[in-house]
Amino acid sequence: MNPLQETTAKPKMSDKQKLTAKRSSGAIQRKETLAGFLFVGPMLIGVTVLTLLPILATFALSLADWNFIAGFDGLKWVGFDNFERLAKDAAFLKSLKNNAYFLLTVPAYLAVSMFLAIMIDKHVYLKSYFKVAYFMPYISSIVAVAIVWQVLFHPSAGPVNQLLLALGIENPPKWIADPKYALPSLMMITVWTAIGFNMIVYIAGLQSIPRDLYEAADIDGANAWVKFKSITFPQLSSTSFFLLVTGIISTFKVFDLIAILTKGGPLSSTSMIVWYLYDTAFVNLKIGYASSMAVVLFACVLLITLLQWASQKKWVNY
């Protein structure tokens, strides 16, 4: 645009704005503000009562020793005692370790999902069928899915072990009944259920890669691997980063599978932070101690979110 035109246009605009501002000042703006509060009010009240006040209460309760049954009279302030106990609590540390193991599921299902997404996006017919098929576990209720796997993994009669026996494996693992295999079993089921969601996001990511990049690579005679390594993978980095972060955060929240399949056992081999928190709060009714775990959980998720903000620019390359 011509700079001269711009300068002549500007005062006109601000004149107009001033006029409307004069007219709308006072009563009209007040009406607008009122309307604003009316529209966002329900959401605001809900979030305040059900999220903001509870998180403050969590922080407060984490400094207390309290059994819910005893009523408010039984509440004792103990400062940071709960956190000191947590640091020495073998069961909590075991749960944290299991959480750390569980992180391995994320790269596993990201790799599978990326592979499937690439195949479905370009290399197969019947795309819609494949999308729905791999998406099935994600929309199915976790309770139904967990119960099916419980039966499939049945140590003696389950189809999985019968197959392994038929294949000549003498002592197949007892899966969720075996302390050594219980956590890996849950991780396998998690990978299976998570693939659908991640694959769909990857397909969307693939569709936003400019076609001419591949055309240029074709002209240079690049093979499939080179195209993947130097176009697809780097172009998907922002999608991968997003999925990695949401995936890591979701491993901190694992609960349903444990509650339905193992209840943290056998020998607390599948106890994870949220399960231990639930067990402490709602089975053993130690509200203060459970709240200190909730604070740790919150801190972990917050830390990852902040790291995400800080590192997004560095990681995502194009």
Binding site: T51, P54, A57, T58, L277, Y278, A281, I287, A290, A294
Partner: peptide, 8 residues
């Protein structure tokens, strides 16, 4: 995370 506010 929702689990951090379950108790309150």
């Amino acid at each position: 995370p929702h689990q951090a506010i379950l108790v309150p």
